[in-house]
């Protein structure tokens, strides 16, 4: 997580397709090497979904944490931790790319 900064902006990779079906957010790998096995798909929990929808290539991670803290009336520190945690997981799985990295 050390290379992930709150000022950074991310967008879903075009190597995955995110689908919302029956309120579930399902991430279907498109490119090889993301899903290691056939028949396997990814789902996000409620926290993950709330963050994913805001990874739009415009909001920085810090701004996402601000928006969510206001929306969910939750401690900013906790939300920031969730935003950084999910971002790390998604980056590890090649599901996100950074916009205009410095």
């Amino acid at each position: 997580m050390s290379n992930i900064h709150l000022e950074s902006v991310y967008v879903p990779s075009d190597e995955v397709v995110a689908r919302v079906i029956m309120d579930e957010l399902i991430i279907v790998p498109l490119a090889a090497g993301i899903g290691d096995m056939e028949d396997e798909l990814y789902t996000l929990n409620e926290t993950g979904k709330a963050i994913w929808y805001r990874l739009d290539g415009h909001l920085s991670l810090g701004q996402i944490a601000d928006v969510l803290a206001e929306e969910y009336d939750a401690p900013r520190d906790e939300i920031e931790c969730d935003v950084l945690g999910l971002t790390a997981e998604l980056l590890r799985r090649r599901m996100l790319i950074e916009v205009n990295p410095v």
Binding site: I21, I27, Y42, T43, L44, N45, T47
Partner: peptide
């Protein structure tokens, strides 16, 4: 916390609120 879960759709149901059309 686990934000993202890898599921085998044939062994683990993907949907909790009913099946799609």
């Amino acid at each position: 916390m686990t934000y993202i879960t890898l599921r085998n759709r044939y062994n683990q149901p993907l949907f909790t609120k009913g099946a799609p059309v």
